[in-house]
């Protein structure tokens, strides 16, 4: 056994007491601060539930067609969505979709500015890289417990945990995309007397857009990967069905809800990827490199 060199019990106690203190004194403040997230999530969920099923299918199939101009992906999307309906998973799928969409939207709002900031300063990048590594590798239960303590079980901690887990790839890919814009193009832009802002919005972001879109794709996928864990703290949706299946040893329930998650993942993955490819060929990055 490793010898006890110092007594770490005071340290542990300090951490626990500190958290308890934060929950007691700042809990309400945190909850108020997270309110907009809840409003966003509820609004999206309300909208998805209120929208007739055929309209949602039509929108997704239409999106797939616009992204590929080909019948294959729309057909896959149609079958996938019909599967959700036929297996009576539609309502749960909408709840899960709402969680995924609101996590992705929030991640976009937070991650892209951070990525831009990282791309412009080596120091900022050195600070954020380990933080991002931590966010991705720390088992989610570790930060789930304090978030549940602060916000109470429910949708907010589920959403926050999902964002923490899903945002890092978008930050990284935004940073990478902006930094790998052809230096010759950047120099030409500089030579024409552009300001840093004009270069960012007129050159860097448009040329990095395919990479940023790949980041958004990753974020949606990671958000879906979190739904089972998120449902443990009250997110509901397909993840909750999986949990119930496990709890009641109802293999079929768990299996079909699990397949439902896979189906959603396939639909969103393929559509966002196809849009990314389309964008890339429109910009013609291959020639610019």
């Amino acid at each position: 056994m490793f010898p006890e060199i110092v007594d770490t019990r005071p340290l542990r106690r300090a951490v626990d007491d500190g958290l308890n203190w934060v929950v007691r004194h700042w809990g309400d403040g945190f909850e108020a601060a997270a309110r907009p997230l809840l409003i966003l999530l509820n609004a999206i969920e309300g909208l998805l539930v209120a929208t007739p099923w055929w309209l949602i299918i039509a929108i997704l199939v239409g999106g797939a067609w616009l992204a590929t101009r080909n019948w294959r992906l729309p057909a896959i999307v149609l079958v996938a969505m019909l599967f959700l309906g036929i297996m009576s998973l539609w309502r749960d799928a909408m709840t899960t979709m709402a969680l995924m969409i609101s996590a992705t939207l929030t991640a976009i709002v937070l991650a892209i500015p951070v990525g831009v900031w990282m791309s412009r300063s080596l120091k900022v990048r050195q600070i954020f890289t380990p933080v991002l590594d931590l966010m991705q590798t720390l088992p989610s239960f570790v930060y789930l417990i304090p978030t549940v303590m602060i916000f109470g079980p429910g949708k907010i901690p589920a959403l926050i945990a999902t964002i923490v887990y899903a945002a890092p790839p978008l930050v990284r890919l935004t940073d990478l995309g902006l930094r790998s814009v052809d230096p010759a193009v950047m120099e030409a832009s500089r030579a024409f007397g552009t300001s840093a802002r004009q270069r960012l919005f007129g050159v860097q972001i448009p040329l990095a857009l395919p990479t940023i879109l790949a980041g958004i794709n990753q974020t949606t996928m990671m958000a879906l990967a979190m739904v089972v864990i998120a449902s443990m703290i009250g997110a509901g949706g397909l993840g909750y069905q999986v949990l119930q299946g496990i709890g009641r040893l109802e293999v079929s329930r768990g299996l079909f809800a699990g397949l439902g998650i896979v189906v959603l993942a396939i639909v969103f993955d393929r559509i966002t990827q196809a849009f990314g490819k389309q964008l890339q060929s429109r910009i013609g990055l291959q020639e610019a490199r």
């Binding site: 010759a184 030409a188 832009s189 500089r190 024409f192 007397g193 007129g202 910009i283 013609g284």
Partner: peptide
């Protein structure tokens, strides 16, 4: 910036054109 916009323009060996813009928008860039 004003000097680069009004006094010197530059042409590059690797062209440095903006790939996401049409020819006319590239020419109008400055």
């Amino acid at each position: 910036r004003g000097f680069r916009r009004n006094t010197v323009a530059m042409v590059f060996q690797k062209f440095g054109l903006l790939p996401h813009r049409s020819v006319i928008d590239n020419v109008a860039y400055g």
